[in-house]
Simulated assay, not measured.
Amino acid sequence: MFPIRDHNPSGRTPYVTYGLILLNVGLFISYWGLFRDPRAINALFFDWALIPALISEGQGYAGILTSMFLHGGLMHLAGNMLFLFIFGDNIEDALGHGPYLGFYLASGIIAALTQYVAQPLSVVPTVGASGAIAGVMGGYLLLFPKARVDLVVILIIVIKVFPVPAWLMLAVWFALQLLGELSGQSDGTGVAYLAHLGGFIGGMVLILPVWLRRGGPAFWNRTHGRPPHPTGRYTDTIRIPKTGRRR
Rank of each mutant, 00 (worst) to 15 (best):
L197H: 07
S67Y: 06
V158I: 15
V152M: 15
D150T: 09
G79S: 11
K146M: 14
L141A: 11
M68K: 11
G138N: 04
F83Q: 13
I157G: 02
F69E: 04
G102H: 09
T66Q: 09
L142K: 10
E92K: 13
A192S: 14
L121V: 07
K160H: 13
M68Y: 08
M169V: 15
L151V: 12
A147Q: 01
V152Y: 03
L70T: 10
A192N: 15
T126K: 06
L105W: 05
I154P: 06
P120N: 09
L143F: 00
L176W: 06
Y116D: 02
S130L: 01
V127A: 04
D150N: 07
G108P: 11
Y100I: 05
V191M: 14
A94D: 02
R148I: 03
S183K: 13
L170D: 03
S183P: 01
G180K: 14
V161A: 13
Q119M: 06
Y104K: 10
V172L: 15
Q119W: 03
P99Y: 08
S130I: 02
L194N: 10
A112K: 01
V172K: 13
P120C: 11
G108F: 08
L121W: 08
V161F: 05
F103L: 04
V161Y: 05
P125T: 04
D93C: 07
V164D: 03
A147H: 03
G180S: 13
Q185H: 05
S107E: 01
L95A: 12
G131L: 01
F162L: 15
F83H: 10
G199S: 11
G138C: 05
A106D: 00
V127Q: 05
L143H: 00
L105F: 12
L151T: 03
